[in-house]
């Protein structure tokens, strides 16, 4: 067996995604599946300028490097799907509880957010040469600042701390890689089915906003390109990211 770097642990970094990008751009050979974990991020990339608020040494802030060059760029939503599924799976292993995927990139326990995903791909000649799967999972942090009123950590759910965040990270990475193998083996359809089953709000009547109007609808699943499929007034409609908004009692951000 080759010796290989499985996990890079950083005390502090701007963002693990950026660190991973830097490695690759500097031509450092990084094997697929290498995980980068940081105990603290100074500029954790949230969505569009939102800084991920995290207490030092409390949570898993990690990125895994994949090379899905066998995937068409139009099928890259699969990477998001396996990231979501792997987080739900590892959290279930630790808690025995069911976690849901709030389309497109949050993981929920009940109505609260426990993890988030940020994926950055590089595309060259219509091939995805690398994919950096950045994930933040709230593990041991018991209280959250005003920017995260809707957050919850695994510890609040199980009553137990994760003793070794690096070990947890490796376990999560292994689950992610198992799902990644499924893509490689042409099991995309199965992945989409598993993903759709775990969708937050699936089959429930919820309120959505689109085209400036509010309607009640029921989530049916996602298309393989990642469009959310909602049944509204007996009509099946597909929505892109900016075309629809979930409405909650507690407004999501």
């Amino acid at each position: 067996m080759n010796t290989r770097i499985e996990l890079i642990v950083l005390e502090v970094v701007d963002s693990t995604n950026r660190f991973a990008q830097g490695l690759l751009q500097d031509g450092v050979h990084v094997e697929e599946g290498t995980a980068i974990l940081s105990f603290f991020q100074t500029a954790g990339k949230g969505q569009k300028g939102n800084i991920w608020e995290s207490e030092p040494r409390s949570n898993m802030l990690a990125s895994v490097i994949l090379n899905p060059d066998f995937l068409e760029p139009t099928n890259l939503y699969l990477i998001n799907q396996i990231a979501s599924l792997s987080i739900c799976a590892i959290l279930k292993t630790y808690s025995g509880q069911e976690f849901k995927i709030k389309w497109p990139n949050d993981i929920m326990f009940g109505e609260k957010k426990v993890a988030g995903i940020l994926i950055e791909n590089s595309i060259r000649e219509r091939k995805c040469t690398q994919s950096i799967v950045g994930v933040g999972i709230n593990l041991n942090q018991l209280s959250f600042g005003p920017y995260e009123p809707n957050a919850i950590a695994l510890k609040t759910i199980t009553g137990k701390s994760i003793e070794s965040i690096p070990e947890f990270t490796k376990e999560w990475r292994d689950v992610l890689m198992e799902y990644f193998e499924l893509i490689r083996n042409g099991e995309s359809r199965r992945i989409n089915e598993s993903y759709s089953k775990l969708l937050f709000g699936l089959g429930e009547v919820r309120e959505f906003e689109y085209d400036g109007t509010r309607s009640k609808g029921v989530i049916q699943g996602v298309t393989k390109e990642g469009y959310l499929v909602i049944k509204i007034d007996d009509q099946i409609r597909e929505f892109g990211i900016k075309e629809v908004k979930h409405l909650f009692n507690q407004e999501n951000r």
Partner: peptide, 21 residues
């Protein structure tokens, strides 16, 4: 030059850096 990032295309919250070919 080839490999240089020229734009990002965001699709379904995936951020795709497009490199020049």
């Amino acid at each position: 030059k080839p490999g240089q990032v020229i734009c990002i295309i965001e699709a379904m919250k995936l951020f795709n850096e497009i490199e020049s070919d």
